[in-house]
Design a protein around this nucleic acid. Structure first.
Lengths: 130, 130
DNA sequence: AATCAATTGCAACATTGTTGCGTTAAATTT
DNA sequence: AAATTTAACGCAACAATGTTGCAATTGATT
């Protein structure tokens, strides 16, 4: 296992995640970084962080890709087999860390990862009379 | 509700879905159609078919978008709240029509749609000693 | 301080999806 | 069966997103 370095760009990206309560797209991260580093560098940092299990990738129903760093302060390893909620109104994606689906698989499948995304209206949008 | 027409292009796209056991991306559909119609037309047909609830859109963990027409011959309405399996080896996406996750949601969320995608190895790839 | 390789910036490219507009062709009406 | 209506199409141009190669930089180690 190779080591990944703590560069200023990587630190800046991690700070953005730390500040955000919702999942972020590459573009959203880029905007918040204003020119700390190149667009390509952000792609590479995100790849690295996913590989290192520090953040995880979420692909939304509409095909957009976002990334999130969940707070598992009490756990050693970043676990991402939980659900995500995608709001149809404000388009925010949040981790539902308490929601874990149960299901029964047919035989002969080897499941390595699951992606459970629900969409609809988040509490914030539900309460502001849509 | 406006009517959507049965054009040759739309019929051709539906035939491709009929023949395929797995979900298909825009590019895969385009290849199978060889120049029956324009690239843009395929996008528009897919949009229409999704709107008409004839096919459904699946976004994979890696961010790729695919479409599938499930066989609910016994049902009147196309239901897509079932699971999908995405093979990490052959990259095929298949509908797991029997797999329906159960879960408990926090309050104040309104769930309209769910996307449950599992990834790993499909039976075909599992048996060919990976 | 020197070394080594991971990381970066830049440029160029590839893929995927969208939009506007004039033309074509289904479906309906006459 | 011809005329009418408008959904659907093709084309061109654009926008967004993601990838790759390579020389220059910089973090970590010796």
């Amino acid at each position: 296992m190779k080591s990944t370095r703590n560069t200023t760009a990587k630190t800046a990206v991690l700070e953005v995640f730390e500040k955000s309560k919702t999942a972020l797209s590459h573009t959203e991260i880029q905007k918040q970084l204003n020119d700390v580093c190149d667009r390509v560098t952000i792609y590479r940092i995100l790849d690295r962080l996913v590989n290192d299990d520090i953040i995880h990738k979420i692909s939304n129903l509409d095909g957009t890709v976002k990334y999130a760093k969940c707070n598992h302060s009490h756990q050693r390893v970043h676990i991402h087999n939980h659900a995500h909620f995608s709001c149809e109104n404000c388009h925010e994606i949040t981790c539902l860390e308490t929601v874990k689906p149960s299901y029964i698989m047919p035989h002969n499948y080897k499941v390595n990862e699951i992606n459970f995304t629900l969409s609809g209206l988040c509490p914030k949008c539900l309460n502001s009379n849509i």
